[in-house]
Design a protein around this nucleic acid. Structure first.
Length: 350
DNA sequence: AAGGCGGGGTA
DNA sequence: TACCCAGCCTT
């Protein structure tokens, strides 16, 4: 169902109010240039921050961003780094295909674009790990292009401004159309995008939006009808199945045996403790002797109970792997699941 | 079009 | 506890 357009007057008022609010309230973030200045932030830093921020939060990303840019200050530093070092530095941030794509993207920019990120949305979209949103965000924020990045914040704000009550994901078409109607088609596109995100994270929040202090309340159709909190309409969630797995703690002379997980699938390419496949909960075998504890870990689409068991160096430490010093385990780049398993094992050591 | 893919913050 | 977040990629 097509959305009813806002009047030209309303659109002008909305743009002006949002950019004025942003000038006064913009968050200061390490990858950001201050609003209203014509200074453009470094495309490498914008790209790195945007990929890190995919499906996560500013609070989680900020320390990672600081560590990454201190260690690899420029794109050429990053492109020359070892893939394993980048993956280890990424450990704990999740969605590890992002880290693999980051490496592939940096090398492609060096090989095919002379080490400079392309400025156009279409060319950015061709790079690995850069989808519709990220291509538009980099084009607008780093290069001042008139691109329209629609993330979850923008989606929520626009759906409310236009009172789009069609359920997601079907509503995305109408939301995109409304976003293109509102977005300034000049150099302000980048500030407008970041303003939308700050508004969405601080005022137009998912739950309990602060409509009374919102600079756009006069242009917001959902606020008028008191429907803001019930928009956008989200699809029902599926129940989360429970699975069982094991992690073996195999120790020898102060070292522990670590493997590397297959490139595809869960925690792809990451270091881990060895252990078999993850089974349906109903197939959970009884706890053997040498059980040290259980890590209960919630993934988005299932829950895993990972049993930590003591293994034997003679019979279990076979196949591809490496002995890693237990005193330097924090440098191994273990994803959170295995970091917790290792913590249990270390606590239980004799 | 739908499902896989992490982790931490928040109410 | 349940839900959400500066999404992308594969099938």
């Amino acid at each position: 169902m097509p959305v009813e357009s806002q009047s030209a007057q309303s659109i002008a008022a909305l743009r002006s109010a949002l950019l004025r609010w942003y000038a006064a309230h913009a968050r200061s973030l390490p990858w950001r240039a201050p609003p209203g200045t014509n200074a453009r932030p470094d495309a490498y830093r914008v790209w790195l921050s945007e990929v890190m921020l995919q499906q996560t939060t500013v609070a989680a990303v900020t320390p990672y961003f600081e560590r990454f840019t201190r260690r690899w200050p420029t794109l050429s530093d990053f492109a020359a780094a070892e893939s394993a070092d980048i993956l280890a530095a990424w450990a704990g941030l999740g969605y590890y295909s992002r880290a693999r794509n980051l490496v592939a993207c940096a090398r492609q920019v060096v090989d095919e674009h002379g080490g400079m990120f392309p400025a156009s949305e279409a060319a950015l979209r061709q790079l690995p790990g850069i989808g519709d949103y990220t291509a538009a965000a980099i084009a607008a924020i780093a290069f001042g292009e008139a691109a329209v990045p629609v993330d979850a914040n923008v989606e929520r704000v626009i759906a409310r401004l236009y009172a789009i009550d069609e359920p997601l994901p079907g509503a995305r078409k109408a939301i995109g159309q409304a976003a293109r109607e509102l977005w300034p088609a000049d150099g302000a596109a980048g500030d407008f995008a970041q303003a939308m995100m700050d508004l969405g994270s601080s005022i137009c929040t998912n739950r309990a939006p602060a409509c009374l202090t919102c600079p756009l309340v006069r242009q917001c159709r959902a606020a008028c009808s008191g429907a803001a909190e019930s928009i956008p309409v989200k699809p029902a969630k599926r129940p989360r199945p429970v699975r069982h797995g094991e992690a073996r703690w195999i120790e020898r002379n102060g070292d522990v045996w670590l493997i590397r997980r297959p490139e595809k699938g869960m925690l792809g390419g990451m270091r881990a403790l060895p252990g078999g496949e993850w089974l349906d909960h109903a197939e959970t075998p009884p706890a053997p002797d040498g059980t040290l504890g259980v890590v209960r870990h919630l993934f988005t689409h299932f829950e895993l109970n990972l049993r930590v068991v003591r293994g034997e160096a003679f019979s279990d430490a076979v196949g591809e792997g490496e002995w890693w010093p237990i005193s330097r385990l924090d440098e191994a780049g273990l994803p959170t699941l295995y970091r917790r398993a290792a913590e249990i094992a270390v606590e239980e050591r004799p």
